[in-house]
C-alpha cells in the first residue's frame, strides 16, 4: 500500500479549475518529482495535500488515514512535513528556536512547568536542545544556532528550513522548489543535503522543481503538470524529453523546430 495516496483530487478557485482529477501514489523511500510551467498548479497541489486548502473533490490518504478535514497540526504530527518556496521562516527567532518549535507536539510539560520551571521541564528542555543541535550539525548550521535567521545567508536559511521540516520526524517530506534562487554551487550542496536526508531517514520525498538537473539527480519518477492536469508521467528522462512537455514549457509556436 502506498504511503501517500491521492485519488481524483480536484480543486477550483471560484470558476477557475486549478487542479483536476489529480492522482499520486508515493511509496516509502520513493522520490517523485513534480514539474510544470508557472501557474500549472504545483504549489496548489502541495497546499491541498497538506491541508492548507480543502479539495473540492477527491481524497488524500496518508498511512491509510484520510487527511481531508483533519486539522493541520494533526496532519503534521502524523508525519507529513513540507517546506515552502518562499521559506516562511520566523525572521526574528534564532536558528535553534526554529528547530525546538518544531518539537512542540513532543513536549509534554504543563503550565505549572512553564511558569515555575519544574525539573521535568528542565529535563525536557535539555533533551530537545541536544536533539536540535544534532539536526543542525547534520545540516552544517550548528555554528549559527544562536543567531536570528534573518541574519543568515540565503543558502543557510534554506537548510534551516529543511532541518525544521525534518525534526518533526516525517515519513513524507514535500519540498517546494528547494533550490530556487540558488547559485549552481549552492544547488549542488542542496542536492547532497536532500540525498543525505533521504538515506538517513528513509524518507519518501515529493518535490517541485524547475531545474531539470535537480530532478534528474534525485527523482526516480516524475509527473509533468500543465493547467492542473498531469500531462505525462514516468521515468525522469522520458518525461523531460516528451514532446508534449517540451511544448508546454516553450510554447506552441516554437514546437516546429
Amino acid at each position: 500500500m502506498p504511503l501517500l495516496h491521492v485519488t481524483d483530487m480536484s480543486h477550483n478557485f471560484g470558476g477557475l479549475q486549478a487542479v483536476s482529477e489529480y492522482n499520486l501514489s508515493l511509496d516509502p523511500g520513493q522520490i517523485t518529482g513534480l514539474i510544470g510551467p508557472n501557474g500549472a498548479g504545483k504549489t496548489t497541489i502541495f497546499n491541498l495535500i497538506t491541508g492548507l486548502y480543502r479539495p473540492t473533490k477527491g481524497s488524500v490518504r496518508f498511512d491509510g488515514e484520510e487527511l481531508v478535514g483533519k486539522k493541520l497540526n494533526e496532519t503534521a504530527a502524523m508525519g507529513l512535513a513540507r517546506t515552502f518556496q518562499e521559506m516562511k521562516l520566523w525572521r526574528h527567532m534564532t536558528v535553534l528556536e526554529h528547530i525546538k518549535m518544531a518539537r512542540y507536539s513532543k513536549l509534554s510539560y504543563g503550565l505549572m512547568g512553564a511558569f515555575l520551571g519544574t525539573p521535568k521541564r528542565r529535563r525536557e528542555e535539555r533533551k530537545v536542545t541536544e536533539l536540535a543541535m544534532e539536526y543542525l550539525k547534520m545540516f552544517a548550521v550548528d555554528q549559527v544556532a544562536d543567531q536570528l535567521v534573518v541574519n543568515l545567508p540565503y543558502g543557510d536559511q534554506r537548510r534551516v528550513e529543511m532541518a525544521r521540516a525534518l525534526v518533526i520526524e516525517p515519513k513524507v517530506l514535500l519540498l517546494d522548489e528547494p533550490t530556487v534562487g540558488m547559485t549552481p554551487d549552492e544547488m549542488m550542496a542542496m542536492i547532497e543535503v536532500i540525498r543525505k536526508a533521504h538515506e538517513r531517514f528513509n524518507l519518501a520525498i515529493f518535490l517541485i522543481e524547475h531545474r531539470l538537473q535537480v530532478v534528474r539527480e534525485l527523482c526516480q519518477h516524475v509527473q509533468a503538470l500543465v493547467f492542473g492536469q498531469v500531462l505525462v508521467e514516468g521515468k525522469s528522462d522520458e518525461v523531460q524529453n516528451h514532446p508534449k512537455v517540451i511544448e508546454a514549457y516553450i510554447g506552441e509556436q516554437e514546437v516546429e523546430f
Binding site: 497538506t50 497540526n73 503534521a76 513540507r82 520566523w90 518533526i168
Partner: peptide
Amino acid sequence: YDYVVVPLVGV
C-alpha cells in the same frame, strides 16, 4: 512572524 507554517510543525 509567519502563522501559516506554525500548525505545519505540529502546533
